[in-house]
Amino acid sequence: MPTILSPDDLITRLRSSDDTVRGPAWQGAATAGAAAVKPLAGLMADGERETARAARRALWVVVRHAGRPGAAKEAAAVTHELILCLENQPVAVRHEVLWMLSEIGGDEAILPMAVLLSDPLFREDARCALTRLPGRKATAALRTAFTSAPEDFKFALAESLRTRGDSVRGYPTRKLVPSRPTTVRASNAG
């Protein structure tokens, strides 16, 4: 039976410079639960690279444990804490949190995620994350964003809506449109 760490104990171990302490700590974080979300998110921006990485992995372990069948209350509690992280964490942390919500977020996550569709820093990750959420409410949020989005982002939102079975007039996919040419010239051939 693995030891269940308190959030404080977990954070202390993640701050260790010893791989044999830090590694097992994040790998055993599954049962740390919702109470550990905020401190782990905070540690994800730590200046010590391996500490930040361990915190990120610990939070993923928490999320994936909470998503197991029959644990709806636990998933909801973790989701609630993740939503709060969307408001006040550094950019890189919020990007990661969006993807975490894409895995376990329910209807309550849709609006906070959709708000970020209007922020150029977050909109592509928010679009991807929302595309993964099941249900009509997520589709409706993407549709609402589509109506007010800048022209260049409408193409991406249209892609999401079509993926979810919604029809969109105009804004065809750009997936086959080439981008930058190479600077290597054919005459280089030996």
Binding site: S102, E103, C128, T131, L133, F155, A156, R174
Partner: peptide, 10 residues
């Protein structure tokens, strides 16, 4: 949900 991973546009 993990059967797919939405891809970055385009």
């Amino acid at each position: 949900r993990l059967m797919s991973r939405p891809q970055r546009f385009p």
